[in-house]
Design a protein around this nucleic acid. Structure first.
Lengths: 346, 346
DNA sequence: AATTAGCACTCTCGTTGCGAGAGTGCTAAT
DNA sequence: ATTAGCACTCTCGCAACGAGAGTGCTAATT
């Protein structure tokens, strides 16, 4: 299988893909030359098309229909043909402005990021909150509320804050709680979960219970998909003609709805990649059955070593990759800056 | 339009609806008598059917097709014909057990509730976190993290906890922060937002800023849809045959995805109703265009006066109302108990 | 040697024309 | 009041068919 394309073949492949992305219709040789006013004939196009078909970049839904890009075709296009595009500057400014207005509220950033991604890419979007790769204890607060109920607020490195309600066996005064918290704060500051576990066992039963919860929480916060999942634009994918058959659409959306599936996907892709880069998964790459006819564009963002998260979009394989990739890249960069500022600013 | 149905007409209406809910096919007189072994003839059924059609409870998709229930038909069915059903006891026990295992974690309750609703009703589910109708200040904590960054944790009555990161103009030591927090705690304990605003202006600029944020946060927490929204089972509605046309499905799911729409819906329905009761909205009731072909079953839950939330499911109009309503009723009751226990237990 | 015109062939898609099946509404008999 | 009988209607699935679009091949052209 030869993979040296002539310039003309590259052009034709690119045009076929561009046209198909627009129209969702198989594209034929005649309509192609007419539409793009090519200065060679349809027969020439046909010849190149058989070559491209033999190389696995195009296929025909049936004999004597136009050509449609294969997954391989899209991949070649994305890697070699597409050229580097960027979001228009005004769009960028608008987006930045929106984030600026949102203040320093991570939760709002996440919602906003999901919303912007969904809107810009006209696809379903997904954002996970930033969390540290290694959890480091920073601060603990114990606040009594009603009776035996206590609210535990745990601050970890990377700005991760988790709160948890717990019921004590017996009432404890706020003073006692504060004392325990202060003791833990002194002993544990700067430690990882492992470090905390290595501490000599405290004699105080309450302190011991709390420490156990703290360690648990620290473990939880370093899982791949640790916190809340932010999604948006799920209905966009329903608008695409390829999902007229519904079953495909259901499977794709299930992937975003069911945490285990999603966790698997993220673990095996973006987690294994260097941060900053944008990953493009086309058609499930043979591994994810539920992604047939879909593509996913993912990126990690955040401050490496401190806290990172993931973001991306899911859309039909027939998606405008240029725009989508540049959107994802830009958003990852923007969120990285924001997170970094938040964590390092003095 | 006469609305006095004979017993037989009620039976026929009920059977038509039951059959249609199962099969999604228009149901004819002959197949009805055959299927349910009725001891009167198809001609009799036909006569009653024209009556029911004239009364607006049934309609024919086209001449000489079977009958299909109208929205009015469903409403009559739900109000008069359906009888009170309840979830089977083993199912209940299983659900209760799951919640028991989840501990006292409200976030987990919400996820679980959405998941259970979606699964039991085979429809899209929605749960909002419980929040107080009137926010009452309980406790404030200020925790310095990096440099000028401060984490503000605010505890309100009803177990509402909100956290917010803020950037100060200049660095402030933890001691100062604690002092401000303690002062605010003393002054504001038990006050509503209005009460806090009536306090004489503090001289300390920092204190003043913090108080402004606190009041803001208290306002936010009393909005109809205050906190996070928990959704599940969105893909279930895609499986229903009536959404083969996609456009209907998109509109319905948009309702769950876009907060303003949802807020409007909840405001005008469940908010206006007495808590405890289950509300059934059939076919948008002429008000919500996006709910054509859909029904929504909603309920409020929580401890009245302390904290309440909303939960419900959205499915096709052709939904098993008995099961759905009992599920929603049960879940509302269960969550109410849990929330009440959490808030009042000593 | 590469490109192109010409042409026969293939396959889909929309339309049309039935016949079967299911259901209705009406009338007359029970 | 109910039912049997019957003519009528409307959908649905299937086959036939022509138009349209596209292909692949061959021979001519540059």
């Amino acid at each position: 299988m030869e993979t040296n394309l002539s310039e003309r073949q590259k052009l034709i492949l690119a045009l076929v893909i561009r046209d198909y992305i627009e129209t969702a219709q198989p594209v034929g040789s005649v309509s192609l030359v007419k539409r793009y006013k090519l200065d060679f004939s349809s027969a020439t196009v046909r010849n190149d098309m058989v070559a491209l078909t033999e190389m696995g970049f195009l296929r025909q839904p049936h004999t004597s229909a136009g050509r449609v890009p294969t997954e391989e075709g899209y991949r070649y296009f994305v890697r070699q043909l597409m050229g580097h595009t960027d979001l228009p500057a005004p769009t960028k400014r608008t987006i930045i402005h929106q984030f600026y207005q949102a203040g320093a509220d991570v939760d709002r950033w996440m919602h906003l990021a999901a919303s912007v991604l969904a809107h810009q890419a006209q696809a379903a979007s997904l954002v996970t909150a930033p969390h540290p790769e290694r959890a480091i204890f920073k601060h603990l607060e114990l606040i009594g509320t009603h009776g035996r109920q206590v609210l535990m607020v745990l601050v970890l490195s990377g700005g991760d804050v988790s709160q948890q309600m717990l019921n004590l066996a017996e009432p404890v005064s706020q003073e006692q709680l504060s004392a325990v918290a202060q003791k833990i704060n002194q002993n544990c500051a700067g430690l990882t979960e492992a470090g905390i576990e290595r501490l000599k066992q405290p004699t105080d039963a309450l302190e011991q219970d709390i420490l156990k919860l703290v360690v648990n929480e620290m473990r939880r916060s370093t899982r791949v998909v640790a916190g809340e999942l932010y999604r948006d634009g799920l209905t966009h994918v329903l608008a695409e003609p390829e999902f007229g058959e519904m079953e495909l659409a259901r499977r794709a959306l299930r992937l975003l709805e069911e945490r285990p599936l999603l966790e698997d996907l993220l673990t095996r892709t973006v987690l294994a990649s260097e941060p900053g880069g944008v990953q493009v998964l086309i058609g499930g790459e043979g591994t994810w059955e539920e992604l047939r006819e879909c593509s996913v564009v993912l990126a990690r963002y955040g401050a490496p070593g401190l806290a990172t998260g993931t973001l991306g979009v899911l859309g039909p394989m027939r998606m405008p990759y240029g725009r989508t990739i540049s959107t994802v890249r830009f958003m990852a960069g923007l969120l990285s800056d924001l997170v970094e500022d938040m964590l390092t600013e003095g």
